[in-house]
Write a protein that binds this DNA or RNA. Structure first.
Length: 270
DNA sequence: CACCACCCCTGGACGC
DNA sequence: TGCGTCCAGGGGTGGT
């Protein structure tokens, strides 16, 4: 579930709790979640954490040497900095013991997420993040228009594609298309420049509001301090198939678009 | 290029 | 109570 707003909440909460802390020990309980070197040094043992970065739905925990760990939360991943009891929770695959007190844990029941280690942030950016589109909070209308023009897929499928723009998932694409009043099946290459400008503006507003509300906790998302978000209470379409459109009252439709369950209003989005 | 089926994996909801 | 089935959607892959 973690999309840009949730991952940004993790970044903000971990920045508060983790930056400046030193990693004393690393316990890898399930090695296959680490794609890349498993050397304790590469997992930041003995390092002080200097920053937490984000690109789209991915995070980087950066150490003083420049070494970094890229974290992708997948569907059910959580990166939590809390007291040592956090390490006892099921599906906790990696535990970093911090020098002061407390631990950082990577937990992921479904294991769609994972960790990638890099010698420095430049290597992460060039080897892994270079394949992503621009971050959804930073992309400019011109650049996005360029990408959308190049594909005949549905707008929904294009916006879900992390190579087009990084950070949106099923929840926020559906919410955004409702805000825009645009049919999810509309071909991406039919949007005009003015429409893309409006899309970028609404996308930014939607994401900023979702971050401010703590992100969406639909099932099990929690931030870097273990707290759930509240934006799920403001969803207009996601998870509301069959309910009434908040704008016109008509029953919301549900179907598969871009390979994903999609909810929209047949009247407001046509 | 676009779409599809299928894969990774677990938990929760639901029907009987 | 418990069991089977389906679904959730972050990704990837290989075939049509």
């Amino acid at each position: 579930m973690p999309e840009l707003p949730e991952v940004e909440r993790v970044r903000l909460t971990l920045t508060e709790r983790l930056v400046g802390q030193a990693v004393q020990a690393v316990d890898v309980r399930r090695a296959e979640v680490i794609r890349g070197s498993r050397s304790p040094r590469d997992l930041l043992r003995g390092e002080r954490i200097t920053s937490i970065e984000r690109w789209g739905k991915q995070l980087a925990v950066v150490g003083q040497s420049g070494r970094c760990i890229c974290v992708h939360l997948g569907m059910t991943g959580a990166l939590v900095c809390a007291d040592a009891r956090e390490a006892d929770r099921p599906h906790t695959h990696v535990v970093w013991t911090l020098a002061g007190e407390g631990v950082l844990t990577f937990r992921d029941p479904r294991r769609f997420g994972g960790l990638w280690t890099f010698p420095n942030l430049d290597a992460l950016e060039s080897d892994r993040w270079a394949g992503l589109g621009e971050d959804a909070l930073r992309v400019k209308p011109g650049a996005l228009h360029q990408r959308l023009r190049g594909t005949r897929r549905s707008l929904k499928a294009a916006l879900l594609d992390q190579q087009v723009v990084a950070g949106l998932g099923n929840i926020y694409v559906d919410e955004l298309l409702f805000e825009l009043g645009v049919d999810p099946q509309r071909p991406a290459d039919t949007l005009e420049a003015a429409e893309v400008r409006r899309l970028v503006g609404r996308m930014r507003r939607l994401l900023v509001r979702a971050v401010a509300a703590g992100g969406s906790s639909v099932r099990d998302y929690v931030d870097g301090s273990g707290s759930a978000g509240g934006y799920q209470l403001q969803h207009r379409v996601y998870g509301r198939a069959g309910a009434d459109c908040t704008r016109c009252g008509r029953e919301l439709l549900s179907g598969v678009v871009g390979g994903r369950t999609t909810v929209w209003c047949g009247r407001c989005q046509s």
